[in-house]
Design a protein around this nucleic acid. Sequence first.
DNA 1: TCCCATTGCATAGATTTCTAAGTAATTATT
DNA 2: AATAATTACTTAGAAATCTATGCAATGGGA
Lengths: 149, 149
Amino acid sequence: MPRLAEFPPRLSSGYLVRDTHRAFQRLLERRIAPYGVARGQWYFLRVLWIHDGLSQRELSARVGMMEPTTVIALRSMERAGLIQRQRSDNDRRKVRVLLTAKAKRLRNELLGVARGITDASEEGIAARDLAAFRRVIARMTENLDRVER
Amino acid sequence: MPRLAEFPPRLSSGYLVRDTHRAFQRLLERRIAPYGVARGQWYFLRVLWIHDGLSQRELSARVGMMEPTTVIALRSMERAGLIQRQRSDNDRRKVRVLLTAKAKRLRNELLGVARGITDASEEGIAARDLAAFRRVIARMTENLDRVER
DNA sequence: TCCCATTGCATAGATTTCTAAGTAATTATT
DNA sequence: AATAATTACTTAGAAATCTATGCAATGGGA
């Protein structure tokens, strides 16, 4: 009986993180759907609410998605009336992404939703434990990113 | 200036969890690809290595995916020669999922890969901090699942 | 000025996941 | 026994993500 048999998913950090991630996503998706916003649009909105008018490349970098993903998300956001694209005048390759009035109006309401989800997730967890959690999970991400070169 | 402006993604547990999850996934994907195993097949293999011969429904439940997801994963696993499907004799609705010899041979090697990723992710983190991390993240999942009814 | 490398975005195609709705086998109810 | 409800899987279609490749505008060097 190889020792590997004793490496059950439930004790693996990867699985714990995955479950929590999926729980966050499900809840977020449900809470923002009533506003006509899809999860894939959320991350972009969140960045644009702070940095309106970024180019697609800058936006991709900030959101942490590949550029083709951004293209797809922006297409749906344009269709949904959340953004407008505007070719830059001084460099015709660049496309500036601009929030519409509609998207701006959604800002406070939706950030409140996000805050609510975060609060719910942290219920009953001591501030000190939460701080420790953040340190550990950030370190994990660093560790994993470093391994990938 | 609304206070909501001060809810930056980087301080949100949801974002921290998301980043870590993606780092785990990327690394896993790269490490198992050389064996001809895709990420979507991985979770099913992991369960089947312990519980070979489950029905699709039982498998879905254990893996934590919806049944149509299972159908798709199993189809690709069958194509890849990792499983065989066999209709149950006493209940013709059920399909038993059986690992091939090839999938069984991959077991120890791939569990080693998984172990390696877990180890890498936990490098430099004290055992006590890790234990606290597990408690916190499990509680978060519970909190979020409870909110969804 | 003309060529070519670089930059910024888009397309193509694959994978992973979901919800909603369909089909086929079994079990329960009248 | 005939019908209805349930169970097990499948299909259809959408969304979110990736890698690899293509195209068009820009800018630097011969």
